[in-house]
Amino acid sequence: MIAQNIAFWIIAVAMGFAAIGVVRTRNIVHAALYLVVVLAGVAAQYILLGAEFVAWVQVLIYIGAVVILFLFGIMLTRAPMEGDSDLDNDQRFPAAVAALFLLGVLVVLLLDAFGGTKIKLDAAVLATGKTAVVGDAIFRQYVVPFEVVSMLLLAALVGAVVIARRD
């Protein structure tokens, strides 16, 4: 438990700084690279929680595909590469107030609702993270939502091609 707590805090602090880097950096490519750190940290937290299949899907889909899409988007829109304060609009102060207010409300609520709740990482938790168990749940209990989400992904990607096509 101690080792897992130490790992949690190291990863959490790195994720926190990287997340702030995503929304504060002046360089748009650096923002994409900070996003990789956050996504890898989230994958590591999944492993800490025993959800190994979701962790590797996170690495494959997010770090492997989504970040590459972002880098393509950055290149195709020829964004200002560095030294431009143009990336932020003039709502920075109200946005910070809104985000801090939301964070305060959520933290107070969570401390009130789940103050003493603990996660015990025993064999039962690790059993729910196994790929066989997750696959069983997807293709037996959740097979209709799975097919719906497949159609949604297909429709969204065809729609993206249609929107971005030059004619």
């Binding site: 995503v22 929304v23 609009n89 946005a95 910070a96 809104a98 985000a99």
Partner: peptide, 13 residues
């Protein structure tokens, strides 16, 4: 993470 995302959506151009 969610609140940092909210800030980014509101403040980024």
């Amino acid at each position: 993470l969610f609140c940092v995302g909210v800030y980014g959506v509101l403040a980024r151009r």
